[in-house]
Design a protein around this nucleic acid. Structure first.
Length: 264
DNA sequence: ATGGTCGCAACGCGA
Protein backbone atom coordinates (compact mmCIF):
# COMPACT_ATOMS: atom_id res chain seq x y z
CA UNK A 1 0.00 0.00 0.00
CA UNK A 2 1.42 3.32 -1.09
CA UNK A 3 0.64 6.39 1.05
CA UNK A 4 1.57 9.84 -0.21
CA UNK A 5 1.60 13.47 0.89
CA UNK A 6 1.82 16.52 -1.39
CA UNK A 7 1.38 20.21 -0.67
CA UNK A 8 -0.25 21.00 -3.99
CA UNK A 9 -0.66 24.81 -3.75
CA UNK A 10 -4.05 24.89 -5.50
CA UNK A 11 -5.57 21.53 -6.36
CA UNK A 12 -7.52 22.92 -9.30
CA UNK A 13 -4.48 24.42 -11.03
CA UNK A 14 -2.40 21.28 -10.50
CA UNK A 15 -4.75 18.78 -12.16
CA UNK A 16 -2.38 18.00 -15.08
CA UNK A 17 0.60 17.21 -12.83
CA UNK A 18 -1.60 15.37 -10.33
CA UNK A 19 -2.62 13.08 -13.16
CA UNK A 20 1.03 12.60 -14.19
CA UNK A 21 2.08 11.84 -10.63
CA UNK A 22 -0.76 9.38 -10.07
CA UNK A 23 -0.03 7.50 -13.29
CA UNK A 24 3.68 7.28 -12.54
CA UNK A 25 3.59 6.45 -8.84
CA UNK A 26 0.15 4.95 -8.18
CA UNK A 27 -0.50 6.02 -4.59
CA UNK A 28 -3.35 4.13 -2.91
CA UNK A 29 -3.93 7.00 -0.53
CA UNK A 30 -3.04 10.55 -1.51
CA UNK A 31 -3.07 13.29 1.13
CA UNK A 32 -3.03 16.88 -0.11
CA UNK A 33 -2.46 20.23 1.60
CA UNK A 34 -3.12 23.78 0.41
CA UNK A 35 -5.96 22.73 -1.85
CA UNK A 36 -7.22 26.35 -1.69
CA UNK A 37 -10.78 25.52 -2.59
CA UNK A 38 -14.14 25.27 -0.82
CA UNK A 39 -15.62 21.75 -0.68
CA UNK A 40 -18.33 22.61 -3.18
CA UNK A 41 -15.72 23.39 -5.86
CA UNK A 42 -13.30 20.54 -5.06
CA UNK A 43 -12.56 18.51 -8.25
CA UNK A 44 -14.17 15.35 -6.86
CA UNK A 45 -15.12 13.78 -10.20
CA UNK A 46 -11.57 14.34 -11.50
CA UNK A 47 -10.16 12.17 -8.73
CA UNK A 48 -13.03 9.71 -8.99
CA UNK A 49 -12.14 9.14 -12.65
CA UNK A 50 -8.49 8.60 -11.70
CA UNK A 51 -9.50 5.77 -9.36
CA UNK A 52 -10.09 7.50 -6.04
CA UNK A 53 -13.78 7.11 -5.16
CA UNK A 54 -13.20 7.54 -1.43
CA UNK A 55 -12.60 11.18 -0.62
CA UNK A 56 -12.45 13.26 2.53
CA UNK A 57 -12.07 16.99 2.08
CA UNK A 58 -11.94 20.11 4.23
CA UNK A 59 -11.49 23.32 2.31
CA UNK A 60 -11.98 27.04 2.72
CA UNK A 61 -11.85 30.05 0.45
CA UNK A 62 -8.37 31.04 -0.79
CA UNK A 63 -6.22 29.51 1.94
CA UNK A 64 -5.22 26.19 3.46
CA UNK A 65 -7.40 23.17 2.75
CA UNK A 66 -6.64 19.44 3.08
CA UNK A 67 -7.88 16.32 1.32
CA UNK A 68 -7.49 12.54 1.57
CA UNK A 69 -8.13 10.64 -1.67
CA UNK A 70 -8.24 6.86 -1.49
CA UNK A 71 -8.66 3.72 -3.55
CA UNK A 72 -9.46 1.92 -0.29
CA UNK A 73 -12.70 2.47 1.64
CA UNK A 74 -12.22 4.52 4.76
CA UNK A 75 -14.05 6.11 7.64
CA UNK A 76 -13.48 9.77 8.43
CA UNK A 77 -12.95 10.86 12.01
CA UNK A 78 -14.88 13.95 13.12
CA UNK A 79 -13.21 17.23 12.19
CA UNK A 80 -11.89 19.01 15.29
CA UNK A 81 -10.70 22.56 15.83
CA UNK A 82 -6.99 23.38 16.07
CA UNK A 83 -5.96 26.38 18.17
CA UNK A 84 -9.72 27.04 18.50
CA UNK A 85 -10.01 27.51 14.74
CA UNK A 86 -11.65 25.62 11.93
CA UNK A 87 -9.07 26.57 9.33
CA UNK A 88 -8.85 23.29 7.40
CA UNK A 89 -5.41 22.12 8.47
CA UNK A 90 -6.15 18.54 9.53
CA UNK A 91 -8.12 15.49 8.48
CA UNK A 92 -7.93 11.95 9.80
CA UNK A 93 -9.32 8.67 8.57
CA UNK A 94 -9.37 5.02 9.58
CA UNK A 95 -8.94 2.13 7.14
CA UNK A 96 -10.72 -1.22 7.39
CA UNK A 97 -7.77 -2.98 9.11
CA UNK A 98 -7.61 -0.25 11.76
CA UNK A 99 -4.81 1.83 10.24
CA UNK A 100 -5.25 5.52 11.08
CA UNK A 101 -3.87 8.33 8.91
CA UNK A 102 -3.58 11.97 10.04
CA UNK A 103 -3.05 14.58 7.36
CA UNK A 104 -1.60 17.86 8.73
CA UNK A 105 -0.96 21.28 7.27
CA UNK A 106 1.05 23.07 9.96
CA UNK A 107 0.96 26.90 9.79
CA UNK A 108 3.98 28.30 7.92
CA UNK A 109 4.61 30.83 10.67
CA UNK A 110 5.38 34.07 8.84
CA UNK A 111 8.80 35.66 8.63
CA UNK A 112 9.82 36.82 12.12
CA UNK A 113 10.77 33.91 14.42
CA UNK A 114 9.50 35.59 17.59
CA UNK A 115 6.04 34.70 18.95
CA UNK A 116 5.78 38.08 20.73
CA UNK A 117 6.33 40.06 17.53
CA UNK A 118 4.64 37.68 15.07
CA UNK A 119 1.19 36.19 15.66
CA UNK A 120 1.70 33.69 12.83
CA UNK A 121 4.77 32.27 14.52
CA UNK A 122 2.89 32.09 17.84
CA UNK A 123 0.11 30.20 16.03
CA UNK A 124 2.62 27.77 14.54
CA UNK A 125 4.19 27.02 17.93
CA UNK A 126 0.75 26.53 19.53
CA UNK A 127 -0.34 24.26 16.72
CA UNK A 128 2.69 21.98 17.06
CA UNK A 129 2.24 21.85 20.87
CA UNK A 130 -1.36 20.85 20.30
CA UNK A 131 -0.25 18.13 17.86
CA UNK A 132 1.94 16.54 20.53
CA UNK A 133 -0.80 16.68 23.18
CA UNK A 134 -3.45 15.39 20.78
CA UNK A 135 -1.39 12.46 19.48
CA UNK A 136 -0.32 11.41 22.98
CA UNK A 137 -3.89 11.45 24.27
CA UNK A 138 -5.42 9.79 21.19
CA UNK A 139 -3.03 6.93 20.33
CA UNK A 140 -0.43 4.58 21.72
CA UNK A 141 2.69 3.04 20.15
CA UNK A 142 0.97 -0.32 19.62
CA UNK A 143 -1.55 1.16 17.22
CA UNK A 144 -0.91 1.33 13.46
CA UNK A 145 -0.87 5.08 12.84
CA UNK A 146 0.62 7.32 10.14
CA UNK A 147 1.00 11.09 10.52
CA UNK A 148 2.02 13.00 7.46
CA UNK A 149 1.77 16.30 5.69
CA UNK A 150 3.40 19.67 5.36
CA UNK A 151 4.85 20.15 8.84
CA UNK A 152 6.58 23.35 7.67
CA UNK A 153 9.61 22.41 9.80
CA UNK A 154 12.91 20.97 8.59
CA UNK A 155 14.24 19.38 11.81
CA UNK A 156 17.68 18.05 10.90
CA UNK A 157 20.71 20.08 9.71
CA UNK A 158 20.58 17.70 6.74
CA UNK A 159 16.99 18.68 5.97
CA UNK A 160 18.11 22.16 4.83
CA UNK A 161 20.64 23.43 2.28
CA UNK A 162 22.50 25.38 4.97
CA UNK A 163 22.03 24.80 8.68
CA UNK A 164 24.07 27.91 9.52
CA UNK A 165 22.20 30.23 7.14
CA UNK A 166 18.76 28.99 8.14
CA UNK A 167 19.17 28.75 11.91
CA UNK A 168 17.19 32.01 12.35
CA UNK A 169 14.83 31.40 9.45
CA UNK A 170 11.30 30.21 10.24
CA UNK A 171 11.12 26.45 9.48
CA UNK A 172 14.55 25.65 10.96
CA UNK A 173 14.74 27.62 14.24
CA UNK A 174 15.65 25.75 17.45
CA UNK A 175 12.29 26.51 19.12
CA UNK A 176 10.34 24.91 16.25
CA UNK A 177 12.70 21.96 16.02
CA UNK A 178 12.42 21.37 19.79
CA UNK A 179 8.63 21.37 19.52
CA UNK A 180 8.62 19.00 16.55
CA UNK A 181 10.97 16.75 18.53
CA UNK A 182 8.37 16.76 21.31
CA UNK A 183 5.80 15.55 18.79
CA UNK A 184 8.25 12.85 17.70
CA UNK A 185 8.70 11.76 21.31
CA UNK A 186 4.96 11.78 21.98
CA UNK A 187 4.62 8.31 20.50
CA UNK A 188 8.16 7.32 19.45
CA UNK A 189 7.30 8.24 15.88
CA UNK A 190 9.59 6.81 13.19
CA UNK A 191 10.60 9.18 10.37
CA UNK A 192 9.65 6.74 7.62
CA UNK A 193 11.46 8.58 4.83
CA UNK A 194 14.79 9.11 6.60
CA UNK A 195 14.95 5.34 7.27
CA UNK A 196 15.98 4.80 3.65
CA UNK A 197 18.73 7.44 3.49
CA UNK A 198 21.90 8.06 5.51
CA UNK A 199 21.33 10.49 8.38
CA UNK A 200 23.81 12.94 6.82
CA UNK A 201 22.38 12.89 3.31
CA UNK A 202 20.66 16.13 2.33
CA UNK A 203 16.95 15.59 1.67
CA UNK A 204 14.53 18.25 0.44
CA UNK A 205 10.84 18.28 -0.45
CA UNK A 206 10.44 22.04 -1.07
CA UNK A 207 12.28 24.59 -3.18
CA UNK A 208 11.27 28.28 -3.24
CA UNK A 209 9.57 29.75 -6.29
CA UNK A 210 11.90 32.73 -5.93
CA UNK A 211 15.04 31.01 -7.13
CA UNK A 212 16.00 31.69 -10.72
CA UNK A 213 16.91 28.02 -11.14
CA UNK A 214 15.70 25.80 -8.28
CA UNK A 215 17.77 22.84 -9.49
CA UNK A 216 20.98 24.76 -10.00
CA UNK A 217 20.89 26.66 -6.68
CA UNK A 218 19.31 23.64 -4.91
CA UNK A 219 18.45 25.65 -1.79
CA UNK A 220 15.81 23.22 -0.59
CA UNK A 221 14.25 22.23 2.70
CA UNK A 222 12.53 19.02 3.84
CA UNK A 223 9.22 20.38 5.14
CA UNK A 224 6.99 17.43 4.18
CA UNK A 225 7.09 14.33 6.33
CA UNK A 226 5.64 10.86 6.84
CA UNK A 227 5.98 9.41 10.32
CA UNK A 228 4.77 6.00 11.50
CA UNK A 229 4.26 4.34 14.87
CA UNK A 230 6.79 1.62 15.88
CA UNK A 231 4.00 -0.89 15.29
CA UNK A 232 4.20 -0.18 11.53
CA UNK A 233 8.00 -0.21 11.24
CA UNK A 234 8.21 -3.93 10.25
CA UNK A 235 5.90 -3.27 7.30
CA UNK A 236 7.80 -0.28 5.92
CA UNK A 237 9.21 -1.28 2.55
CA UNK A 238 10.12 1.87 0.63
CA UNK A 239 10.16 5.66 0.65
CA UNK A 240 10.33 8.09 -2.22
CA UNK A 241 10.68 11.85 -2.62
CA UNK A 242 9.57 12.68 -6.16
CA UNK A 243 12.08 15.49 -6.71
CA UNK A 244 11.43 15.53 -10.46
CA UNK A 245 7.98 16.95 -9.82
CA UNK A 246 9.53 20.31 -8.93
CA UNK A 247 10.52 20.61 -12.59
CA UNK A 248 7.17 19.61 -14.09
CA UNK A 249 5.03 22.12 -15.93
CA UNK A 250 3.46 24.72 -13.60
CA UNK A 251 4.77 23.00 -10.46
CA UNK A 252 3.90 23.29 -6.83
CA UNK A 253 6.85 24.49 -4.72
CA UNK A 254 6.54 21.17 -2.83
CA UNK A 255 7.00 17.69 -4.32
CA UNK A 256 5.20 14.44 -3.46
CA UNK A 257 6.61 12.24 -0.71
CA UNK A 258 5.41 8.64 -0.43
CA UNK A 259 6.00 5.40 1.42
CA UNK A 260 5.12 1.80 0.70
CA UNK A 261 3.73 -0.30 3.54
CA UNK A 262 3.72 -4.05 2.96
CA UNK A 263 0.40 -4.77 4.65
CA UNK A 264 -1.36 -8.04 3.85
C1' DA B 1 22.94 41.42 -2.96
C1' DT B 2 19.08 41.32 1.80
C1' DG B 3 15.98 40.66 -3.77
C1' DG B 4 13.24 37.20 -5.82
C1' DT B 5 7.80 34.24 -7.47
C1' DC B 6 3.68 32.08 -6.89
C1' DG B 7 -2.06 31.47 -6.25
C1' DC B 8 -6.30 33.42 -5.05
C1' DA B 9 -9.02 36.88 -5.91
C1' DA B 10 -9.41 41.39 -6.13
C1' DC B 11 -5.60 45.23 -6.62
C1' DG B 12 -3.50 42.70 -0.75
C1' DC B 13 -2.44 38.58 1.69
C1' DG B 14 -0.24 34.40 2.69
C1' DA B 15 3.36 31.27 1.34
Amino acid sequence: MRVATWNINSVRLRRPILEDYIHKHQPDILCLQETKVVNQDFPASFFHQLGYPYQEIAGMKSYNGVAILSKIPLTANPIRPWCSMHDCRHLSVELPGGLVIHNFYVPAGGDIPDPHLNKKFAHKLSFVREMADFLKSTHNTDQPVVILGDFNIAPSPFDVWSHQQLIDVVSHTPVEIDLLNSVQQSLNWVDAVRQFFPETQKLYSWWSYRATDWKKSNRGRRLDHIWITPKLRPFLQKALIVEDARGWHTPSDHVPVQITLNLA
